[in-house]
Design a binder for these strands. Structure first.
Length: 211
DNA sequence: TATACGATCACCT
DNA sequence: GGTGATCGTATAC
């Protein structure tokens, strides 16, 4: 067991650079997915800040997308996907790992963007410690690894990226269409051919390969 | 109540 | 290239 850490949670004002609620209200989920590339994901857990630049995402399109958790309607597990855009939807996968999503549609729809990989920026030693493996190159490559590094667990489900004190998004850089690659989504069976995975071309930090 | 399986990863050959 | 880990949830009985 770790020694108790009773340092105060970060009570500093919200950074002015944080992305506002309107950012999340894109007309298309794919637009939000593209715009999340180059955005900085930040968490503060037990007073420690970790951050990284998002380089890979996937879009999940509600009712009409068989791969989307929301495609068969609202359940206890996926209920957060049906909340308003900007909410944080976290779920447990394979009984072991967590995956984090940005809800992308108005209340009741059930779409979102899965964050699949980031380029580590701040708190790298913390990330490595949380991962329990020394290798820096894998620290935030893949949705499960990234949640582990950033300390994201099921308790983050229901936070809002525009207002949360422990998870948010900040503008960092932007990419043109030419700098973004598109492919099918990874690890799904239905709808895997759909071009809903977006990643930064040539980035060494993106996860698994597929077309 | 029982069972099948998953938006993954690590480790093996 | 393949496979086992591991458990909450959804669905079937």
């Amino acid at each position: 067991m770790k020694p108790m850490n009773r340092s105060l949670p970060d009570s500093s004002p919200l950074p002015s650079s944080r992305l506002p609620p309107v950012f999340f209200r894109q007309v298309e989920t794919e637009s939000l997915a593209r715009k999340l590339l180059g955005v900085r994901l930040v968490t503060v857990v037990r007073g420690v800040r970790t951050s990284g630049e998002i380089v890979e995402v996937e879009a999940y399109l509600g009712r009409n997308d068989p791969a989307c958790h929301a495609s068969r309607g609202k359940t206890g597990r996926n209920a957060m996907m049906f909340e308003a855009a900007g909410h944080c939807y976290v779920y447990l996968i394979y009984g072991i790992y967590h995956c984090v999503n940005v809800v992308s549609d108005p209340e009741g729809v059930g779409s979102g963007v899965l964050i699949r990989a980031v380029t580590p920026m701040e708190g790298i030693e913390t990330m490595r410690r949380r991962r329990g493996r020394a290798d820096m190159s894998d620290v935030a490559r893949g949705p499960g690894r990234l949640c582990q590094s950033f300390g994201i667990t099921a308790s983050f489900c229901g936070e809002h990226f525009a207002t949360s004190q422990r998870i948010w998004l900040e503008p960092f850089t932007t990419y043109s269409r030419e700098q973004i690659a598109i492919s099918g989504r990874i690890g799904i069976s239905a709808g895997q051919e759909l071009p809903l995975r977006f990643f930064v071309k040539h980035s060494p930090w993106v996860s698994g390969t597929r077309r």
